[in-house]
Design a protein around this nucleic acid. Structure first.
Lengths: 193, 193
DNA sequence: GTCTATAGCGGGATAGAC
DNA sequence: GTCTATCCCGCTATAGAC
């Protein structure tokens, strides 16, 4: 079973599970809560998923796949300058994280709840997404847009982005777009602009 | 009972609990695991703590208090320039997070596992620490060392710092000191240096 | 202050009828 | 595909001896 050919029904169940996992955390979310959210009884849940782990794996696959897809699309549609590409990546990342506000968050914050097998299976998808980021960071470094250690800079950026889920208020004045702009301008050496 | 006058024994138990909470997460850490780590049986644990929640609260209080203490000390010892003060705060933050590598991490990542009462009680300590940060960020903004929205900049910085626990390797080449330096130099407008 | 023993509960998961 | 009923387990917490 792959993320690209899930039934619409299953996709909807995964969406609802993601919401609960974000609100409560994976461990505190019971199968009874999941079933209730889905409008069925807990026994019926196991017709759709082998066990609770499989639900988590499905959510994380969905979240990472969405992030990867949106990022690729954003890069394809934006301009060629390192600045534009950096901004496009940050914006896409924040949009899957804050607007859709579900599966991608779970992918980031519950990765360690995955068992070894699921981690193995999903690591490729995750690596593909991280490679996309590394390429864009490298381009920005090569162009002198930003400075510093490749490894450290990319992790600081990911940290700043991923931590937003802890404080971002969807009802507030800022949009993901604004955050992306502000973060990129913070990183960019003023000398280079 | 306050963090400042815990018995040495209890402090040691708190330290060991912190380690397990970081490794496994609060929910997956059982009282049996905690007791085992402390070298006693699970029943004996409740002679020292009323319940599992109280252990978490003690760890988080310890972690936040440590961070606050080290940060104050770092500010008292460093120079007066906004750059030095920013660097001192980042370094102190990373040291409690990565070197001590225990209670402060729990304070950041398991805050939401606290019940309402404990959150109420500990929020003052937490606020005191955040105010310290806000003051230093404000000074840097006022001096033109960094630019941007006060609210957003401080949260990006905290994100970059707090996310380090996810990837930092204590055996690796970088020390907390190096990370602090690199982060500050990334944020500082080159025009201002 | 630590032990053994266990109560009591809620969790994940299964079986079989419909 | 969903239901009811239930198993079985491991968890937190307690009681009372030492």
């Amino acid at each position: 079973m792959n993320v690209v050919n899930e039934s619409p029904r299953r996709k909807e169940l995964i969406r609802q599970a993601a919401q609960l996992f974000v609100q409560e955390g994976f461990d505190r979310t019971t199968v009874r809560m999941l079933a209730h959210e889905m409008g069925i009884k807990s026994g019926s849940l196991f017709h759709h998923f082998r066990d609770k782990q499989e639900i988590l794996a499905a959510v994380i696959e969905e979240g990472t796949y969405n992030a990867l897809t949106l990022a690729r699309q954003a890069l394809a549609e934006c301009g060629d300058s390192p600045n534009e590409r950096l901004h496009a990546m940050a914006r896409a990342h924040l949009e899957t994280l804050l607007t859709d506000r579900n599966a991608h968050v779970v992918a980031l914050y519950e990765w360690r709840s995955l068992d070894a097998k699921a981690r193995e299976h999903l690591s490729h998808l995750r690596d593909a997404y991280e490679e996309l980021w590394e390429r864009v960071i490298d381009e920005a470094l090569a162009a002198g847009l930003i400075e510093g250690d490749r490894f450290l800079v990319s992790r600081f950026v990911m940290g700043a982005l991923n931590w937003t889920v802890r404080w971002y208020d969807p009802e507030g004045v800022h949009k993901p777009e604004d955050l992306a702009r502000e973060l990129v301008s913070m990183m960019v050496s003023s000398a280079a602009t």
